[in-house]
Nucleic acid binder design. Structure first.
Lengths: 257, 257
DNA sequence: ATAATAGTGTCTTTGAGACAATATGGC
DNA sequence: GCCATATTGTCTCAAAGACACTATTAT
């Protein structure tokens, strides 16, 4: 007989049930800082994570992921979406489930099962947050700062490490890079974004590979104007560079082929 | 202020909290049936999922995933591991987290947040279950049977579909195929296992590709005996075939290279 | 003209893909 | 010898990788 048969009922609780089910969000953003050089160049980009300094028990004074408790009338994903909106004031943005954190004793308030999400937001979305919220300390940190220098609440260090691993994997295996780029972008920008999130990624012939191989064809396409002329941009370089955009194509990867 | 600040405490509950947090397991197995032909040949393999017919409210009479409620003293993963052991009598086997199912109203018993796992077990592990459990109806079904012909309890249809998608993806992108194979195996067996789980997978030159390309090197290695002579098997063919085993290498895939 | 980045030409080597040819062992 | 499956030979074309070269624009 499975335990399903001995289910606790909502009317008469006989079994110990969790004390709360929050959704916590690892909000990543890619900051963009102009380099002040005499000539045009790509901005400096850095991957950052948003944290909030807790003011009250438990873990007062430590840095924590933004989050909030889920209500009965919503799914966990809806709770995360609501929380993301409260923090950024924005509805959009990439929001994806990361996992569940349920080790006994992870939260001194009781039996708290946390669901982690990660979001990719634009830097400006976080400015709203800083102004709107009264006196709550908010910070943007690089992954290294967060993991090495800060005191993190609960098991949020584990969550951030897991989220970092996941975003790195997704950056290489999906087209989430689009979340960090304008609709049209140059291949140098794309390469820089990938490298910012996955420093190990090195492709000397990146441009050629993307543009000249059949198997990669389909994930990107050249941008052209109405008359079919290729569009280019010289925002970051002297010589204009061809603009590209992501298509809807999602390639299927395999270790065997 | 984040909702973390308004946390319910275990001593004095002021907020509605979930009525239960079960772990449900999609148990996959690959059945192996000898083909009765005059000559040696590979067995027929089929991917099956184990379901249990519910006897009591809610969803009495419908087929459901095996599962059980999580206790305060264990993590969700531990609960799934415990449940897997109860069902199969075996400690081992591949067990992996799939996701959370929390849509309001998904369970008539109340606010029940289910965590799905999927497991890969060997067929014989399920035999124990059939004998040990008193009078509970257990079945092994192909994915198609489960999705097309059975009445499934709760949102277990969604869970099974998600699990199927995930196992297909993992079969191509990780080395979980090893869970369905003996330690040493021939490349024909490996190919058959992959195709059983992912029928779309077609590689005419499979053997050559695996054995002769540098980029795939490392995930498999030839088995040799003490004196360095290659080991082969003629269990499934007249001419003996080279045996291989998986290494510990995990390749990193990217859509950009 | 110069500097700086975008993109191409070209050559070598590896890998994919298709088939034909050969090898092995049970019968 | 015959059969069925495993494995290799061979040939063609696509792609990776390296590096030198050309192109385009701001200053």
């Amino acid at each position: 007989m499975t335990d399903h048969e001995q289910a606790p009922s909502s009317s008469a609780k006989k079994y110990r049930t969790p004390d709360g089910v929050p959704a916590d969000i690892v909000m990543f953003t890619l900051t963009k800082r102009e380099r002040k050089t005499f000539t045009k160049t790509l901005p400096i980009r850095e991957l950052k994570v948003m944290l909030i300094r807790r003011r009250s028990w438990p873990c007062a004074g430590m840095w924590a992921l933004p989050g909030g408790f889920c209500r009965e009338s919503e799914s966990i994903y809806d709770a995360a979406k609501r929380e993301l909106k409260e923090e950024t004031g924005v509805d959009g943005g990439h929001l994806e489930y990361l996992g569940v954190y349920s080790a006994p004793g992870r939260d001194p308030r009781g039996w708290i099962i946390s669901h982690a999400f990660y979001a990719l937001v634009e830097e400006w979305m976080l400015e709203h947050r800083q102004a709107a919220d009264d006196a709550e300390e908010v910070g943007l940190f690089t992954i290294n700062e967060a993991l090495e220098e800060l005191e993190l609440a609960f098991d949020h260090r584990d969550i951030i490490m897991d989220a970092y691993r996941k975003i790195q994997q997704q950056m290489l295996q999906t087209t989430i890079a689009r979340q960090f780029l304008p609709e049209f972008f140059t291949l140098s920008e794309l390469y820089q974004v990938i490298q910012t999130v996955v420093p190990e990624f090195k492709e000397p012939n990146f441009i050629r590979k993307i543009t000249s191989t059949r198997s990669r064809q389909g994930i990107l396409e050249e941008v052209r104007d109405d008359s079919g002329k290729p569009l280019s941009s010289n925002q970051y370089s002297q010589r204009p560079a061809q603009l590209y955009r992501f298509t809807d194509h999602v390639p299927l990867l395999s270790i065997y082929t």
